[in-house]
Each structure stands twice: as structure tokens, then as C-alpha cells.
Design a protein around this nucleic acid. Structure first.
Lengths: 183, 183
DNA sequence: GCCTGTGAAGACGTTCACAGCA
DNA sequence: TGCTGTGAACGTCTTCACAGGC
């Protein structure tokens, strides 16, 4: 069992917050008792849409892209990278295979649409230089890939129905610098 | 010149929002005209505390850590990585130097405090496995490094006066999965 | 008795609408 | 005229406080 107060403490938030947020999606707890950890975990996974495997592609196999290729925490959460693309696959394959200690398949970006269909790719991860990010996003849209995780530090526009989430860690760093400057 | 409406459009937000946010820090625009781009940029940099060089250390030189070592966008924004630490520097140096195409100094974590003082490190970037993140944070605190950028997917606790900012891109991915599941 | 679920209150951030000024 | 700066209105998120149920 776990109580909303315990969960709140772990996450450094208010206990009422935890209860309200969960209550938004249904009734998962038992009054006077708390939440069954196992059930709660399953319920949260279901709510987040993590009760299925998400098939992803990484586009742009530089340092960051290849770091993601070997990122082990993805598997724990039902995320799976099923393809890697680059504008210069031949050059990249050698470097990355050596780095990761195993052969890696890197496909030319021109084959994105075809491979996306064959491998049922649902999420595209953009790790190209910012100058290429929008055109890669356009290719992803064209391939019908509705979810985009963008690591390139630039704003990307997509049509209605497609979703972009940015991972701008330099913005978070800017925030840190601001807080350090004023304390 | 640039108007709040133009800025708002670029960032996909409301124009009043842009004006309110800027006005919070002072008066930077000219009524009936707009903002001088050059002045505004300088003002924003000053507000964020980016008018000085921030000296950073990366702790944990795995795939992600070494990707950060060669991340070029840091320099553009006055961030500088001045040291890299690992629990196993000898093993790491060879692999990373090869990857980055130039020799890289990786220092044993036990020397953190000493090196932090000598190189005036102000921000620590944690890219270790999650199991080591808290103990690395403790070392950073002990070394008087007040700012921490945490890439390890785990909650870190630090004393009053120290600041931790998390970069949990799997959380952003979870958010993307949720939005895709419900649309 | 104890902890969840939840209306009500409060805090906060966003948007509107317009006065003020170049 | 045109766009900033800003009080007021509005909406949303957070917290309080307690009824409800095990």
C-alpha cells in the first residue's frame, strides 16, 4: 500500500495534488487505507498509454542520436527504437557500431517513408542539427508519423493532428543559470 | 525592430503574454514602435544571467555524457564544460577520445572537490546511472557547486540554497505517448 | 481512526481591453 | 496611427478542509 502523503513526499508535491490528479482519471484508492501500489502502477500505465509497445525511429545519428540508440531505460517503459536514419549512413555506421560495440543499421533518410510503414513507426526522435529539424519533421509528417520528440534547439511546425514535444535542455540550463544568478 | 505580436507568433503564444513577461523585468519597448532586437537580446541575456561564462562539469562519461562533451550549442550561450569526471577514467578516456577525435581529460570522481575549486566550477551535470545520482549530488554539494543539471531519471535531494533542475526526457516521451493515445 | 475523494477557497498565470506615448 | 505597458476580468491549477467510506 501507499498513501497520497507518501507519494507526495517522494515527488516533493502536496498530498491533495496527488489525490486530485489521480481522481481526475477515476477512483483508484481505498478510503482510510490508501492505494494498492501494484494496481496503481497498472492504472497509471494504462492512463499514460504505456500498456502497449511504442515503436520509434531516431533521425540524425550524431553524438546525441547514438547515445539514445543505446539508452537502456527506454526498454523498461515499453519504448523501442526500431530504426535509425541519417543523411550519411555509411560514414555513421562504422563510427556508431564501434562505439556501441555491436553492428548498427543506419538507413538513409530518403527511405524514411517506406521503412516507417514496414516497421510501423509511431514516434520520430529528431536529433539532427537545428537547421535540418523542420525538413525532417516534414518527412515524418509525410510518412504519417504523428508523434515527434524534438531535441534540436529550434521551433518546429506541424499540421493539425500531429504532436511535437521539445526537449530543450539548454532552456532548462538557462533556467538554472537564472536561478543561480538570483539567489 | 520587432513587435510583441511577431515574437508571440514565433513562439506560438499570446502577444499580451510576451509584453507582460518582459514588463515584469522592466520597460524594454517603445510605445507605438516595438522592441529594438539588439537591445532586447542583451537585456534578456542579462536577466537570465547569461552575461557571464558559466563553468560546468560533467559527471558520468557514458554515451550521454560524452555526447554533451561535444555539444557545440553550449558555447554559443556562454556555457563551458571545463571538466569531465567518471568512476573509471582510464577505461573511459580511450573510448571517448576516439569517439570525439581528440584527446579528452577524464578525472576520477574522487578529485571532484579539488578540481571544482581550481577550475571554479559552478554547475554540475549528472549523467551517471540513476543509482549513483544521489551520491554524486552529495559530492557536488560538498564541493560547493550550487547548480545541478540532472539527466539521471531519479529524484535528487539537496540542502537549502542548492538548485537541481531535471532533464527527464522519458517523462516528455510519456507525455507524448499520452497525447497520442488520446487523439 | 484513518486516508481518499471533492466542493470551496485561494493563488497563480493568461487574456482582454484600453490608456499612454512615440 | 500603432504598439507598449498595465489594471481588470477571466480561467486554470493548487491547497484547504472535511464529508464519505473502509
Amino acid at each position: 500500500m501507499v498513501s497520497s502523503a507518501q507519494l507526495a513526499n517522494r515527488c516533493s508535491v502536496n498530498a491533495a495534488q496527488v489525490r486530485k490528479d489521480l481522481a481526475y482519471f477515476g477512483e483508484f484508492g481505498i478510503r482510510g487505507v490508501g492505494y494498492y501500489v501494484k494496481d496503481l502502477l497498472q492504472d497509471i500505465k494504462r492512463i499514460l498509454g504505456l500498456n502497449k509497445e511504442w515503436r520509434m525511429a531516431v533521425i540524425g545519428i550524431g553524438n546525441l542520436g547514438s547515445a539514445l540508440l543505446s539508452y537502456k531505460d527506454f526498454l523498461k517503459q515499453n519504448y523501442k527504437i526500431v530504426a535509425a536514419f541519417d543523411i550519411n549512413p555509411l560514414e555513421v555506421i562504422e563510427r556508431v557500431s564501434e562505439k556501441l560495440g555491436q553492428p548498427v543499421e543506419v538507413i538513409h533518410i530518403s527511405r524514411l517513408k517506406e521503412v516507417a510503414r514496414d516497421r510501423r513507426i509511431e514516434i520520430g526522435i529528431i536529433t539532427t542539427p537545428p537547421s535540418e529539424a523542420q525538413s525532417v519533421a516534414n518527412l515524418l509528417v509525410e510518412a504519417g508519423i504523428r508523434g515527434i520528440l524534438n531535441f534540436a534547439p529550434t521551433q518546429i511546425k506541424v499540421p493539425e493532428g500531429y504532436i511535437v514535444k521539445d526537449v530543450f535542455f539548454t532552456s532548462i540550463l538557462d533556467n538554472l543559470a537564472y536561478l543561480l544568478s538570483n539567489s
